[in-house]
């Protein structure tokens, strides 16, 4: 771990100036479950670590007129056990309860989960000067890539590690962001960025910005959601593939749907074509498998990860059928 100054922030407004304008110079600390590992492995080598836990009032789950508001420092465990979320935004509860382990969920926060860095083993190793670490090679291309991206990759092939982001995107959630000139709001659809746009980051936060709230539109009647995650191990494991689907049903006809894939692309991967395709359809096995095939149409696997295509198709169709 490189030496750094540790600063307890006292208010949201002061954080941007503490962070400064240069990426890498400072890091925000919330639950620390990702950051501490990065610090120890010299992946993150900031001069300053800005503690957000010293700011009062960033930990809440509230239902307001325009929807659900979640404070950025709300722990994953609090979300998992919230009756409100379980009743009205069950897809989020399902996704959060599939994260890591109870111990990590007790400490990890929702904003931290959305903003966590990728788990790619080349990125996480000190020995590889990969694209994301400022080098000029993505080692997964010629290396071992069984857990890497099958969609949206290039020149870097990480998969986005967050479960909660996949569920939140399926709920059309947005994030409130604090910067030096005050707050702004961004849909999650626009928040995440592909490596071809910014190789060093997974989202559009500027160096001196941080997430201050997660906003989920009010749930609609007759709407249900499901999160399906495939992992090798039943705890402490990231998704080989996952999917969040929400569907509004009238009878057995789908009037509206959202479909977001996880574990297969450098960002939570929304598939608008599939959403449109499902709209107005009676949900049958044929419809579900057609949707699943469509969801993976752009897949372009690497040497070791073509298994993910069928795996993902299978869970997409399973998720759709389960909601019908």
């Amino acid at each position: 771990m490189k030496k750094f100054a540790y600063i307890d922030a006292t208010s949201v407004d002061t954080v941007p100036s503490l962070l400064g304008r240069r990426f890498g110079q400072a890091q925000v600390l919330a639950g620390g479950t990702d950051l501490v590992g990065e610090l120890k492995e010299y992946i993150a080598t900031p001069d300053r670590v800005v503690n957000l836990k010293s700011i009062p009032g960033l930990d809440y789950i509230r239902q307001e007129d325009d929807g659900l508001k979640i404070g950025p420092l709300t722990t994953l465990a609090d979300i998992e056990t919230s009756t409100l979320i379980n009743d009205q935004y069950s897809v989020l509860q399902q996704a959060v309860s599939a994260i890591a382990s109870p111990q990590i969920r007790n400490v990890g926060t929702i904003a931290g989960n959305i903003c966590q860095r990728p788990r790619c083993w080349y990125y996480r190793s000190e020995d590889f000067d990969c694209l994301k670490n400022g080098g000029d090679t993505c080692y997964s291309v010629r290396g071992v890539n069984r857990y890497h991206a099958i969609i949206g990759g290039g020149p870097c092939y990480i998969v986005h590690p967050s479960d909660s982001a996949v569920a939140l995107m399926s709920l059309n959630a947005s994030v409130k962001i604090q910067g030096p000139r005050g707050p702004r709001e961004e849909m999650l659809d626009d928040f995440f960025v592909l490596p071809e746009l910014n190789i060093m980051r997974e989202n559009g936060l500027r160096a001196n910005e941080f997430v201050t709230e997660i906003i989920v539109p009010a749930s609609k009647p007759n709407t249900k959601g499901i999160y399906v995650k495939v992992r090798e191990r039943d705890a402490i494991d990231f998704a080989m593939a996952s999917v969040a689907v929400t569907m509004t049903m009238s009878g057995n006809t789908c009037s509206e749907a959202t479909v977001v894939l996880g574990g297969v692309a450098p960002v939570p991967w929304r598939v608008p074509d599939v959403e449109q395709f499902l709209q107005g359809k009676q949900i049958t096995e044929d419809v579900a498998s057609a949707a699943a095939e469509m969801a993976l149409r752009e897949a372009d696997p690497m040497s070791d990860n073509s298994y993910k295509i069928e795996m993902t198709q299978n869970i997409v169709s399973q998720a759709i059928l389960d909601l019908a």
Binding site: W121, R124, R233, D234, A235, I236, D237
Partner: peptide, 13 residues
């Protein structure tokens, strides 16, 4: 490539 307990998967309870 997987020299951590996260990527070297031993079974959990």
């Amino acid at each position: 490539t997987n020299s951590s307990f996260l990527d070297y998967r031993m079974p959990t309870s």
